[in-house]
Amino acid sequence: MSLLTDFFYTTDHEWVKIDGEVATVGITNHAQEELTDIVFVELPEVGTNYTSGDPCAVVESVKVASDIYTPVSGEIVEVNDQLTDEPALINTDPHGEGWIFKLKLSAIEEIDHLMKSEAYKEFTGS
């Protein structure tokens, strides 16, 4: 199996970065632009197993609370604790320091259902 180090996207505006068998998940720049002013992030617990499509985190702006659905199935291995003190990292660096959680993939073939960068750009009309 070749090592994938690429971004994949969902129609719910999450991104996934695959690094071996670990997937890092965050929300896209488009999503943070829509939400603006992230003021709180509820993180999942390390060790919890989720199936793709499960709500597992909540990102809150001043006005709304938005569920974040995991795009892939697996066990949470790490969460971005920095977001507890600096939720606005999602606004300033959504694809980098604003990552939300990492999970150990249990079904890597699920990424076939996700969009690549070009398709996502088309999807958001940007």
């Binding site: 603006t36 002013d37 003021v39 702006s61 001043v62 006005k63």
Partner: peptide, 11 residues
Amino acid sequence: PVQYTSMISEH
């Protein structure tokens, strides 16, 4: 309009 750029900066 609910907001233009950012609720916090408008506030």
